[in-house]
Simulated assay, not measured.
Amino acid sequence: MANSDVQLQPAVQDLLNQVAKFFPGDVQVQIIGDLKSGYLRHDQVQTMQDGQHLFVQLSDITDPDFLASHELLHILMTLRGFPQVYFPLTTGDDQLDEQLRYVGTDLFDTVAHFVVYAEQRQHGLINKTVEEDVVKGVRQTITPEQGHVDAEMITRLVTVLDAFVFLGDHFDQYRYLFDHDFPIATQAAEQLYQLLTEKPTTSPFAMRRNVVKLFRAFDQQLQRWELPALHLNEFAMVTSVFSKRQLGLQVKQVFKLYYSELRNHATGKRAYVGFTISDDQNSLVMDGPVGEKVSTEHIQALYQKTVQELFDELHIPYLER
């Protein structure tokens, strides 16, 4: 249940109760500060787990219902079997790894927000005031452009794209602000938004498809700006969503396996990475024998297994559709 100092709307309390049904422990919403900034950002709420206790912690009280419901919906998506994003690889450069994880997580969450924001609107938790406060939050997150591409463009693009997803049909009511302060990012974000809305994000499979599509399109935009690509299709691992038939196929029919130059973050060893043939996205990471000759033999042996056998052996989570 919620702490006594948090007065949640019935719709938010209902979401809290839904999370409590799925989570095998105690779930609470906590306010951990009395700051009321007057704007809304995703970093004003976080989830902490301590054993059998799950705490949704609000560090800002501008709109507790919006912030708490947003986080609870993300948790519900995880508990109900939507894909997750993982970062099991390392480039060997801690600062680069951190940037890739940060941007990769934000882009992944942006796709999840098609589900989250729609649910919040359905529950009456997004109104004109919330929209205005989120737009204020955008302007607190990124600085106005100076007429050229600079080091902040990646953050601007991620932030403005999420604003497109949040505002949806209402974006034009605020477009003058975005066009005035962030014209380059807004133009690029709108193209990415149009790409993501070609097919709706309404199922785990559709979410994975749009995440993979966004990772690739985001790199293409960075290259148009002559910025280095992030290669999140390789660096980030996204939960696979298989049909029953795919689980029974041989690994070689579904995946391309490579002995990567990147290393397994947990073990420090060069990693074997499996890319799904249909979308060329990193879907499994594992250790194996070292050396080109033995690695080739190892991959050939893995190719003969069924997809289900390999994933079960490696204890890599996957979803069925």
Rank of each mutant, 00 (worst) to 15 (best):
Q308C: 04
V285E: 01
R321D: 15
F87D: 04
I277L: 15
A189W: 03
V165P: 12
T202N: 15
V149S: 09
D179Y: 02
Q122L: 11
F82H: 11
D150E: 08
H170S: 13
T62P: 05
R175S: 15
D179H: 10
P289G: 09
Q300T: 11
Y259N: 12
S283Q: 14
Q300R: 14
F23T: 04
D133Q: 15
Q52S: 15
P204E: 01
A206Y: 02
Q250L: 11
D133G: 00
L96W: 04
G248Y: 08
E297Y: 08
R139I: 09
L319S: 05
F242R: 04
A229V: 05
L96N: 07
D97L: 09
H70V: 00
L284C: 07
D26G: 01
V251R: 08
F22Y: 14
N3C: 01
D279C: 06
V6S: 04
P289K: 03
E226I: 02
L230T: 02
V160H: 02
T276R: 14
V116T: 14
D162L: 03
V285H: 05
G168I: 08
H42I: 01
P204M: 01
I316F: 12
Y86C: 07
T78G: 10
Q308R: 13
V130T: 15
V135F: 04
K244E: 14
E71K: 12
Q28F: 01
P200E: 12
Q18H: 09
L72T: 04
D172S: 14
V273K: 06
Q46P: 00
R263T: 11
N127D: 15
T296R: 13
A217V: 07
T110E: 03
F255R: 05
R80L: 11
F255W: 12
I32F: 04
A301T: 07
I61F: 04
P88I: 06
S203D: 08
V254E: 10
R156T: 03
Y259M: 03
V307D: 02
T186W: 01
G274Q: 05
P183H: 03
V12A: 02
V149G: 02
P144G: 11
Q173P: 00
Q308E: 15
P24L: 04
F87P: 12
A68F: 03
Q122P: 06
L177R: 13
Q253V: 00
T239K: 07
S203C: 05
D26S: 09
D60K: 10
Y102I: 05
F23C: 08
D287W: 04
P10E: 08
M1A: 15
M48P: 00
Y176R: 14
A271H: 09
D150K: 07
Q13G: 11
L100D: 08
V45Y: 00
R216Y: 08
Q253I: 00
G92Q: 04
V285Q: 01
K252R: 15
V251S: 00
N264R: 07
E320W: 00
H298W: 15
M207S: 06
F182I: 09
E234V: 12
F171Y: 13
D63P: 02
K305Q: 14
I142L: 11
T141H: 10
Q140L: 00
Y39E: 01
